[in-house]
Amino acid sequence: MPTFGVIVFPGSNCDHDAYHALKHIMGVDTRFIFHKETDLGKVDGIVVPGGFSYGDYLRSGAIARFSPVMQAVSDFAAKGGPVIGICNGFQILLESGLLPGAMLHNEQLRFTCKQVYLKTEAFDTPFTSAIPKDTLLHIPVAHGEGNYYADETTLAQLEDQNQIVFRYVDADGNPTRESNPNGAVGNIAGICNAARNVVGMMPHPERAMETLLGSADGKYVFESVLQSF
């Protein structure tokens, strides 16, 4: 059976949600990996969870990237291991240089917490392969700095290499201005690296795992990675 590691930084607050999603709902061996660890141990996949690592001091994710564990995560990613960064985890992957671009404050300056629709545009990543092609994901966002930014050269490269994984869309699947919760360029909600094994997304699939709690669309993300093993 595969084993998942959930990284825990001081200030992480979605680590238990990610653990619950993997361990109790997907039924996968899962363990927490503390930020001071230099060795991930035997793991097949890594979740860099959401929260406010190091209080988001300086910039979101800026301090976390220098945690001892992040070198091990980079090495794991370089060997092709699947890594997903969710929300603050995405911000950490950007600061680490594992993914291109940066996060600005939400255009409207408010912390935004609501359900959004996501259109999947890249199905060839370990975290999206099991998402049905014609299905929009209905999952929540909860962030103050999710306004994805990259310069024009980087954006063109992301488009050319099909690295834009998710976009915010309306209920009909159109990437409208109204459906964009933070002002992100191109309605970008998630991207992957050129090797496609590292995915970052602002919305929270681990908070959309049970129909009783509003949506189970997040399960597709974790089903995808389990099928990839």
Partner: peptide, 8 residues
């Protein structure tokens, strides 16, 4: 390395 993010 730390204090500024030159992407933005």
């Amino acid at each position: 390395k730390l204090l500024a993010n030159e992407v933005m």
